[in-house]
Design a protein around this nucleic acid. Structure first.
Length: 673
RNA sequence: GCCUGGGUAGCUCAGUGGUAGAGCAGCGCACUCGUAAUGCGCAGGUCAGGGGUUCAAGUCCCCUCCCAGGCUCCA
């Protein structure tokens, strides 16, 4: 009907407004609070400004701050304010792009005269931003013809490049779908103006005015290459975070602190677990006795499970002649990630191995194989070396020397789906035993231009993996083009105690290496067949898994993985003999226990062992010696449990260890700072 | 590799041109104590390494090494 438009709301209801009404009008019509809260709107799946006129029949929802979309809008608007502040403080600064990202935003700049931001500049910029927010400047959208836009951004090379890209092909993310009213091969672009001082090329949407912003904080500066390309100019990137309320901002900053407190590098030093002596080299860790013990416990349990799961244990050397990696294709595809070769007398080149697979293939090929043997599952904690670029090494999670809990399954094609399924089940079960239980799966497909093998092979492998992944009853996300050069993979992503996700296990399907190495087995038909190969690592790498567990538990490892499980504290010297008896009783039950004698006050000793996150601290004094009891301080509890019979405590702890129990996962967080 | 910020005692850090400091940890002695730091003392540093400026350098300049964050979120 002329003169009116009818729109549909998220709850299914419809509302009729005068023609020409905007999203803001709709919000007002729904309610005063919504009108005050509204930041933007979603019209037929497209995010738009509140000032957008609503078309008849549209499905509309109002975007408010405390939503993912709302936060994205206000972060992006805050990025604009950042750019406005920087251009005010550095006249002539060029600004490139400034998107919203997870938890925040950034903007990339090219400052006049090659100037660089310093940390101190962040404060000045932030002050200027707060001034702009205080002026409550409206964000005003305009459409410009391409040639007008090019002249408007005459001094802005990066903006001009973006506009030129739009003009050429209607860049993805621009043009038709995003601007809504612009056809593909667009001839116009949109800009946003706030005050006369600042205008930016932008799709929008934006908050109505800068006064709607304010709960933000600039965090750091960093270099970032234009378009992520290290052959192009490096820009100065400013990162910040922005939220819908002071409370949300504060909570986010607190989460960052919490993550820092859990940083495995810090815990590794505090708990004396491992270190990275610069004398050894970047990305090369040493494990100290306590860390070594934890690592051995992790590995031993894994070995036990693998043995029960039908894996056979193999060993292979750390270096090999180049031939092996020429055949495998690694030297063609992975040479950048490998340490340079060692040249021997006869001109023979030896490489440190970056992967274990070719060695396991050699074991397969050491004699003729029969179909009766398949599937063959070879397992090894294989230490490999990868030349990570100096800027990317990070604690134990990105290192240059690493140990994979690596196995290769060789099977007949018809066994493939079944093996994949049992492997995935095995993976998830094992990870749960370490206390991780929040998973999702990711399917990585053929990397364009960086893969070997035919499309048909990739198609078959990918379909098989997808089918198996879908049967797992977990969320599955697609990682287009993320596969290895020899095959697609499923990776298991795990969310830790503070909600971060980590890529752990990978299961890769491989038709290529069996072919390159001319692997075969004799089938029941007495003919030769090519086996399928499945690569899989559950921890990913032992070092990285160690770091993830450490952060997941904030250093308070479950008792079965704690290097020291029980410390016994005699109140006075004359309780020593009984304390030793208590420790010996624990040891006899298979627990790792120590006595810390009374050369220091009790309070000091309690404090030290609590900070070292020992699961059980037992105190014995005058009351305990005659009664055969102990005072039990369980990690994560505030008050001791006094006068508990020794055999009761020992039995309980031993049972907890046997069950891999998790009494209070990370529960002492609030107590120890 | 590149950008920004760092490197001072085992650890955390103070010290911006004029005699290298603190707390914790370590060692010694005393204290013998019932639930998150007992007291006193001692030792510990070519201020990352090298070069330069200066009467004088931890401090200013240059080079190298190492560490952290970022360079993957694309108007």
């Amino acid at each position: 009907m002329a003169g009116e438009v009818t729109v549909r709301l998220p709850d299914g209801s419809a509302r009729t407004l005068p023609a020409g009404s905007t999203a803001a009008d709709l919000a007002s019509a729904i309610g005063r609070r919504l009108a005050a809260d509204a930041l933007a709107a979603e019209v037929d799946g497209e995010l738009v400004d509140l000032r957008r006129v609503l078309p008849d029949g549209a499905t509309v929802s109002i975007v408010t701050p405390a939503s993912d979309q709302g936060r994205a809008v206000l972060r992006h608007s805050t990025a604009h304010v950042l750019a406005q502040a920087v251009t005010a403080l550095w006249p002539g600064a060029e600004y490139a792009i400034g998107p919203a990202i997870t938890d925040g935003f950034y903007y990339d700049f090219d400052l006049p005269g090659g100037a660089r931001f310093t940390d101190a500049d962040l404060e000045r910029i932030e002050a200027e931003m707060r001034r702009i927010v205080g002026e409550d400047q409206p964000f005003v959208r305009e459409e410009l013809a391409i040639h007008d836009a090019l002249s408007m951004f005459a001094g802005q090379a990066y903006k001009r490049e973006i506009i030129a890209g739009v003009a050429q092909q209607g860049e993805p993310g621009f043009g038709a779908e995003a601007a809504g009213d612009v056809a593909p091969g667009a001839t116009t672009v949109s800009i946003y103006r706030n005050s006369d001082a600042f205008v930016d090329l932008c799709l929008g949407p934006h908050v109505p005015s800068t006064g709607r912003l304010g709960h933000f904080k600039l965090q750091r500066v960093a270099g970032a290459y234009w378009r992520g390309d290290d052959k192009r100019p490096q820009l100065q990137r400013v990162y910040g975070t922005a939220w819908e309320s002071a409370k949300a901002l504060e909570e986010h900053l607190h989460r960052l602190e919490e993550a820092e407190r859990r940083d495995h590098r810090r815990l590794g030093a505090d708990l004396d677990l491992f270190s990275f002596p610069p004398e050894i080299g970047s990305g090369l860790a040493v494990f100290h006795p306590k860390g070594g013990l934890m690592r051995r416990l992790m590995e031993d349990y894994s070995r036990q499970r693998h043995e029960a799961g039908g894996y056979e244990f193999v060993y292979s050397p750390h270096i090999t002649k180049s031939d092996l990696f020429e055949t495998s294709g690694h030297l063609d595809w992975f040479a950048d990630g490998m340490f340079p070769p060692m040249e021997l007398d006869e001109g023979q080149r030896y490489y440190l191995k970056p992967m274990n697979c070719p060695f396991h293939i050699m074991i397969f090929k050491s004699r003729q194989r029969s179909y009766r043997e398949l599937p063959l599952r070879f397992f090894e904690f294989g230490t490999v070396y990868r030349y990570e670029k100096s800027g990317v090494v990070h604690g134990l999670t990105r290192v240059r020397g690493l140990t994979q809990d690596d196995a290769h399954i060789f099977c007949a094609r018809e066994q493939m789906a079944g093996e994949l399924e049992s492997t995935l089940t095995f993976v998830l079960d094992l990870l749960r035993d370490y206390g991780l239980d929040d998973f999702y799966l990711e399917l990585s497909t053929k990397p364009p231009g960086k893969a070997v093998g035919t499309d048909e092979e990739w198609e078959e492998a990918t379909t098989t993996l997808r089918t198996v992944a879908e049967s797992m009853d977990l969320d599955l996300v697609l990682d287009e083009g993320g596969g290895a050069f020899y095959g697609p993979k499923i990776s298991v992503q795990v969310r830790d105690a503070i909600g971060r996700s980590w890529q752990l296990s990978t299961v890769q399907l491989d038709f290529q290496l069996p072919q390159r190495f001319a692997m075969e087995y004799v089938g029941a038909d007495n003919a030769r067949h090519r086996p399928i190969m499945i690569h899989r690592a559950l921890f990913g790498t032992v070092e990285r898994f160690f770091a993830i567990l450490l952060e997941h538990y904030a250093g308070a490892m479950p008792t079965w993985l704690s290097p020291l499980q029980v410390v016994v504290l005699p109140v006075r010297d004359d309780h020593d003999a009984y304390a030793r008896h208590v420790a010996a009783t624990c040891a006899a039950a298979g627990l790792r226990a120590e006595v810390d004698p009374a050369s220091e006050p009790l309070g000091a000793r309690i404090r030290r062992h609590r900070m070292q996150k020992v699961p059980y601290v037992l105190v014995v004094g005058d009351d305990d010696v005659p009664a055969g009891t102990v005072g039990v301080n369980r990690r994560g509890t505030k008050d001791p449990d006094k006068g508990v019979f020794l055999d009761v405590v020992v039995a309980a702890v031993a049972a907890e260890v046997a069950a891999h129990g998790l009494p209070e996962r990370g529960g002492d967080v609030a107590v120890v700072r």
